[in-house]
Amino acid sequence: MVVSQTYQLKDYKTDTHNTWCPGCGDFGILTSIQMALAEIGVPPHKVAVVSGIGCSGKAPHYLNAYGFHTLHGRSIPSATGMKLSNPEMTVIAVGGDGDGFGIGCGYFVNAGRRNVDFTYLVFDNEVYGLTKGQGSPTMKKGMKAKGMAEAAVQDNINPLALAISSGYTFVGRGYALNPKATAQLIAQAVSHKGTSFIDIAQTCPVYNDLHTKEYYTDMVEGQPRMYWLENTDYDAVVHDPTNAGEVVEKKLQAIGKAYETGRMPLGCYYKVDVPTFEEQIAEGRPNGMDSILNPNLWNRDISKLEAVLR
C-alpha cells in the first residue's frame, strides 16, 4: 500500500487527556486507526468516529475527526444514521465486546443485513472493564478472570462467525499489540465498500489475567498462536458475487477459520463486493446518488401527492 503524502499519524491525534489504564491494549488499536487513516489519506474533517460506552467508547475523543461518543450498544445505529445523512463522510464505529455483542447485539446482527458503507471495529478484551471486570459475551464458559466472582456459566459467542452469517461483506480479525499489521487490515476494511467488521483481540492488563500479551504470543504445538491468513494460501475473497455457490463456500470456509481451535488466524476472513445500502436505494431514482447526498430538501414539489388526494 502506498503511504499517503498528505496526512500523517499526528494529524489524527488530539491532546485530550487520556483516561485509559497504563498498558491498555486500546492504545495499540488507537494507533492502528490513526495509521490506517493516514495511509488512506482521508482528511480528518471527512472522518466521523462513532462509539458506544466503555473504555473503548472514549476512543473518538483521542482522534482528531468528527467524534460521536454515543450510548451503550448504540454505536451502530448512530453510525448508520450519520452515514445515510452524510454519505461523503468516512464513518468508523468503534466499541467494546460488551457494547457490541451484549447490549448492542441486535444492531450488530441487523447492520449485516443492510451493508451501509461503514467500518465497525470491536476492541475485544472479553471483559467489562469500566464496571470492574465482569465476563462479556466473548468470554468462554468456564473461564474466570480475576474480577469475576465465579467462572463463566454462560458460553461465548463467536463474533466472526456471527458477522459472516449476519451478512457483513468484510470480516477480519486483528491484534491490539500489533498495530502496524492491524492498521493495514483496518485500512482495507475502511476502503471496502460496504459494512466491514474487524474483531480486534485486545489485552486488558487490569481485569483479563487469562488472555494476556503472553497468552496471545504463546507457542501452540510448536507454532506461534497467532498467524496472518495473508501469509497462507487462504483466499478470503468472493470473486464472483453472483455465484451463490461460491458465496456459500467462502462463508463456510471463513466460519471454519473462525472456529479454528488452538491457533488464532488474523487478517481478512471474508470479503465480497456487492452494492451498498446507499447504492441500492439510490438506484433508479430520478436524482440517483444526489438524492441521497443532498441535505437541502425544502424546495420540494408535492403537487402530485396532493393531486392524488383530491
Binding site: A48, V50, F68, T70, L71, R74, I76, P77, S78, A79, T80, G81, M82, K83, L84, S85, N86, M89, G106, Y107, V109, N110, P295, L297
Partner: peptide, 19 residues
C-alpha cells in the same frame, strides 16, 4: 429498522449528520 432503540439512535445520528 430492527427496533425503536435503533430508530431513535439512527435519527439522532442523521440529525448530527446534517439532514
Amino acid at each position: 429498522v430492527e427496533d425503536e432503540v435503533s430508530a431513535i439512535n439512527m435519527a439522532v445520528g442523521a440529525a448530527h449528520g446534517g439532514k
